[in-house]
């Protein structure tokens, strides 16, 4: 049975009248890779800092293995943090940085040396012990920061946008490495990022946040395929979001046309948000679909083309491996299971 290692109960955080977090409820299971995802200012870093002990919640409880730890200082918590800008000690070399936490715990010198060596080789930095921090590249500093946190064998590792400062290729490599490490060590990771791709590719659970509230909690696949509202849909990947009206179960009207869909349980004539992923729209010959439009722009994106197609009421974003030239009149085909119907939320858009 998996147990909850961290439980946030009704946590709110107030900075001089500005609400950074509003009644956050979240539990994190042991060995889970949880990502807090959202745009800047959504409260994800605040949530992480509350778990780390650098902020105290204004109200609500933080439970660690079932014990309330609201005002436990950071140095007494069984969690370690990888900071956004690494926060490595510039007056210490690599070895001393990594050994910092172990030395405080008064572990004997031999096992410190052994542990540091093991962890450094795990992050591919064997032989860098005596190097000064300033002489390392960004990626190497990143690894030292991870090693410095992991060497303490925390129960939970908190990572605050740890890959934000790295270039794309290095970031992708580190994503895979981090995920491997997490699985190998069996440590719970709480990961903060604003990069939805990163969140989707690494996490067991993604927590999408916005303006201090949790929008949706789910597996990456759930979040991508079944976004709960237009905000999540828009934030996770690209989307066409269009106003629609639910005519009856399994039938929706938008863009002046009626479409079959797989959603039901809405009130009759209920206004809804209709979300269609750009890759779920097929470009067909004009006469093959009731929904028609004219190609306005075509951009080559590597794997696919991105086309903007104007129909009478809406500009559609389409991702396709087949290109239609600018100015071409095309038909757009949307299958029922590509149409996601969402209740209108007052706060979104």
């Amino acid at each position: 049975m998996q147990q909850n290692i961290i439980h946030l109960v009704d946590i709110s955080k107030d900075y001089n009248g500005t609400e950074a977090l509003k009644n956050i409820n979240l539990y994190i299971r042991k060995n889970e890779f949880v990502t807090l995802l959202g745009p800047s200012g959504c409260g994800k870093t605040t949530t992480l800092r509350i778990i780390g002990g650098f902020e105290e919640p204004t109200s609500g409880d933080l439970l660690f293995n079932g014990v309330k730890i609201n005002d436990l200082p950071p140095y007494k918590r069984r969690v370690n943090t990888v900071f956004q800008k690494y926060a490595l000690f510039p007056h210490l070399n690599v070895f001393e940085n990594v050994a910092f936490g172990l030395k405080i715990k008064k572990i004997d010198k031999k096992s410190i040396a052994k542990k540091v060596r093991t962890i450094l080789s795990m992050v591919n930095l064997a032989g860098y012990e005596q190097r000064e921090i300033g002489s390392l590249s960004g990626g190497q500093q990143q690894r030292v920061a991870i090693a410095r946190a992991l060497v303490n064998e925390p129960e939970v590792l908190l990572l605050d946008e740890p890959l934000g400062a790295l270039d794309l290729k290095l970031r992708q490599e580190m994503q895979i490495e981090l995920k491997n490490m997490q699985q190998r060590l069996g440590i719970t990771f709480v990961y903060v990022t604003h990069d939805q791709e990163e969140a989707l590719s690494m996490s067991d659970t993604v927590v999408v946040m916005k303006e201090g509230t949790i929008q949706q909690i789910g597996t990456p696949i759930d979040i991508y395929n079944e976004p709960k509202n237009a905000f999540v849909a828009d934030f996770i990947g690209e989307s066409n979001i269009i106003d629609g009206v639910m005519l009856r179960d399994y039938l929706v009207e938008f863009a002046g046309l009626q479409f079959n869909c797989v959603d039901h349980g809405f009130a009759e004539k209920e206004p809804v948000d209709v979300v269609v992923r750009p890759e779920d729209i097929q470009v067909v010959a004009e006469e093959e679909s009731a929904l028609k439009g004219e190609v306005k722009t075509v951009t080559f994106k590597g794997v696919h083309y991105e086309m903007l197609v104007d129909s009478t009421t809406f500009r559609w974003k389409i991702h396709s491996t087949v290109m239609a030239p600018v100015g071409a009149k095309v038909g757009l085909k949307i299958l029922p299971d590509a149409i996601h119907i969402m209740k209108k939320v007052a706060t979104t858009k």
């Binding site: 002990g53 650098f54 200082p73 950071p74 140095y75 943090t81 900071f83 000690f89 405080i104 410095r148």
Partner: peptide
Amino acid sequence: DKSLIEAAEDLGADGVTVFRK
């Protein structure tokens, strides 16, 4: 950098140790 102080606390250093180290 304040984050250095936080990092030290995070690694188990109390106030005195943060100052000393």
